[in-house]
C-alpha cells in the first residue's frame, strides 16, 4: 500500500518537474524552432512545426561574420574566468582561513555591489573606457566582465573553501609549504570540484552578459550577444534570422552546460548537501 502511494507520488512529482522544466526551457526551444522557419512562417503566429528550412542560417552567415564574435565570446568568457580565478582564489583563501572582524562585512559589501543596477555606473564606466582607449577592446571588456562577476566568484569559492578543514592547510604549513605551495599543492586540488563549478558558472555568466558587452563594443571586440543584437535593430524585425543568430550564439554554451551539468549541480549544492 505504502509502496503504491509512494510510486504515485513520485510520478506526480516527476510530471511536475517536467512541466516546470518545459516551461523554463520553452523560450529557448521556440527560438530554435523559429530559426528553422522562413521569415514568412515566422511572422504568421504561433506554430510549433517549422518547415525545416535553413535559409535563415545561410543568410545570417552571409550577412555577418559569425566566427569573429564567436571567438570574441570565447576569449572574453575564458579570459575573464581565468582572471577572476587568479584574483578570487587568494581572496577567498584569506577570507575562509584567515578571517578578521571585517570579513563578513566585506563579503556582504561585495554582494551588495551586485544589487546595484548596472545603468547607474554606465556613464562613468563608458567615459573611463573612452578616455583610456579601452572602448571596443578585448582587454577592457575582459577586465570588465571579470570585475562584474568577481563578487559571485569570490562568494562561491569562499563557501567551498570553508568546507576544507583548516588543519590540513596548517599541516601543509608545518610541512614547510610556502603560502603559494599551500594554495597550489593542497588547497586547489582539494577544491577542484568547487573551482570547476565556479569556472563553469562564470563562463556561462560571461558568455551571456549582454549589458556591458553591447554598450562597450562596436565591431572589434563584439561577442555573440552583440551579434544577436545587431540583427534586431536596423532592418526592422526578422524573427527567423534573429532566432537563427540567437541559436548560433547560445549553442556552444548550451552544449557545454549539457555536458557539465553533473559537475554544475554538484558544485552548486556542494555546501548544502555534503
Amino acid at each position: 500500500m505504502a509502496r503504491t502511494i509512494s510510486t504515485r507520488r513520485t510520478a506526480v512529482v516527476t510530471l511536475c518537474a517536467w512541466i516546470v522544466a518545459l516551461v523554463i526551457f520553452f523560450p529557448i526551444l521556440y527560438t530554435i524552432i523559429t530559426s528553422f522557419k522562413s521569415e514568412a512562417e515566422a511572422i504568421q503566429g504561433f506554430n510549433l512545426i517549422p518547415s525545416g528550412t535553413v535559409e535563415s542560417y545561410v543568410e545570417v552567415q552571409t550577412q555577418k561574420d559569425y566566427f569573429k564574435p564567436f571567438m570574441n565570446s570565447v576569449i572574453l568568457s575564458l579570459g575573464s574566468t581565468v582572471l577572476a580565478l587568479l584574483v578570487s582564489v587568494p581572496a577567498a583563501w584569506a577570507m575562509a582561513f584567515s578571517p578578521t572582524k571585517r570579513t563578513k562585512d566585506i563579503l556582504m559589501w561585495m554582494l551588495s555591489t551586485k544589487m546595484m543596477p548596472a545603468v547607474a555606473v554606465l556613464v562613468p564606466i563608458y567615459l573611463i573606457f573612452r578616455d583610456t582607449g579601452l572602448l571596443d577592446s578585448r582587454i577592457g571588456l575582459t577586465v570588465m566582465l571579470m570585475l562584474i562577476n568577481l563578487p559571485i566568484v569570490v562568494w562561491m569559492l569562499y563557501t567551498y573553501f570553508r568546507e576544507i578543514p583548516g588543519e590540513i592547510l596548517e599541516a601543509a604549513r608545518m610541512d614547510g609549504a610556502s603560502l603559494w605551495g599551500e594554495i597550489i599543492y593542497v588547497l586547489t586540488p582539494m577544491a577542484v570540484p568547487g573551482i570547476a563549478s565556479t569556472m563553469l558558472l562564470n563562463i556561462i555568466l560571461a558568455w551571456n552578459e549582454a549589458f556591458w558587452t553591447i554598450r562597450l563594443t562596436t565591431t572589434n571586440a563584439a561577442p555573440l550577444t552583440a551579434f544577436i543584437a545587431s540583427f534586431s535593430s536596423p532592418q526592422g524585425l526578422f524573427w527567423a534570422k534573429l532566432s537563427a543568430a540567437s541559436t548560433l550564439a547560445i549553442a556552444p554554451i548550451l552544449v557545454m552546460g549539457w555536458f557539465s551539468q553533473k559537475q554544475l549541480v554538484r558544485g552548486l549544492t556542494f555546501g548544502a548537501v555534503k
Binding site: 578543514p165 588543519e167 590540513i168 596548517e170 599541516a171 601543509a172 593542497v186 586540488p189 582539494m190
Partner: peptide
C-alpha cells in the same frame, strides 16, 4: 594533528 590532517587527494 588530532584529526590526522592528511592530504586526502
Amino acid at each position: 594533528f588530532q584529526s590526522y590532517a592528511l592530504y586526502p587527494h
